Simulated scan of single mutants.
Amino acid sequence: MPEVIFPGPEGRLEGRYHPQKNKDAPVAIILHPHPQFGGTMNNKVVYNLHYAFHEMGFTVLRFNFRGVGRSQGEYDQGVGELSDAASALDYLQALNPNAKGCWVAGFSFGAWIGMQLLMRRPEIQGFISVAPPANMYDFSFLAPCPSSGLIINGSGDRVVPPADIVSLSDKLKQQKGITITHEVIEGAGHFFDPGMEEMIGHVDAYVRRRMTETSR
């Protein structure tokens, strides 16, 4: 899988790009957890999401936010990281102008950034939000949430209390015109160890179902 360096708002951003041979394959961008707590694009959840999307036929890009790994710049409270994500999506779309669809997936802090990207980019048709930190960040900007998606978390998560994720999910489910699916992996903690295979299985089933519905 080729390492890529692409321009971001504060300098170069480092990523891993995994294309399909099919030029009109859908694209997906994967966003990593908090840079100040060890989050990188090589986080196990991010890595597994990347490969799950590729196996489903997506051209996939994951990357390091500013100040992480070989990405230039410094942590910017989520503001700059959202700009990084927008730049990464621009780069992915420039390489794949004929892509049949566009998804975003994020884990923890990356889920928060991903949901904000969703609000900015109407071409994103689906999202995967893994353990969104509803106890740490305000998600009220999702009014209305522009597309359907999957929220997934572990019942034993001690970083983000499951009750906060239920509250977020229930609020979004009240919105018309979209469908929010919420899955809970019993016994899984924040990093899905154990629970990774089951979590990825739910993501796979959800995305495949959505893609089948879209292609009808």
Rank of each mutant, 00 (worst) to 15 (best):
I152Q: 12
D204S: 10
K21D: 15
G149K: 01
V160R: 09
Y75H: 14
Y137I: 01
L142K: 06
R70M: 02
L61C: 08
E198V: 13
V130F: 05
L117N: 11
L61G: 10
F192W: 07
S167A: 09
G38W: 11
P35C: 11
G57T: 09
E123P: 01
V45P: 05
M41G: 06
F139P: 02
V160G: 04
Q20A: 04
G11Q: 13
G73V: 06
R210D: 04
L89Q: 13
E213A: 11
L168N: 06
C102W: 02
A105P: 12
G39Y: 01
F37T: 09
Q93L: 15
A131M: 04
F53T: 06
S87V: 02
K23F: 11
S148L: 05
A143C: 02
V46D: 06
Q77Y: 15
K23D: 14
A111H: 10
F191D: 14
N42S: 09
M211S: 05
A28D: 08
R121S: 01
V203Y: 05
H32L: 08
F107K: 07
S140L: 03
P161N: 01
I29A: 09
N96F: 14
S169P: 13
E186D: 15
T181R: 12
L168S: 06
A94H: 14
W112M: 09
I180P: 05
A188E: 11
S215Y: 05
E55R: 12
D24L: 11
Y91S: 13
G57Q: 10
L49N: 05
E197T: 13
F192T: 14
M136W: 02
G114I: 09
I185R: 11
E197Y: 08
S148P: 04
V46W: 08
A143S: 15
L92H: 02
P194E: 00
N153E: 10
I200W: 05
T181L: 00
L61H: 10
M115S: 15
P2E: 15
E10W: 01
A143W: 00
A105T: 13
V160F: 06
D24I: 11
N22V: 08
S129P: 03
V60C: 07
A86M: 07
N48A: 10
Q77P: 08
N22G: 01
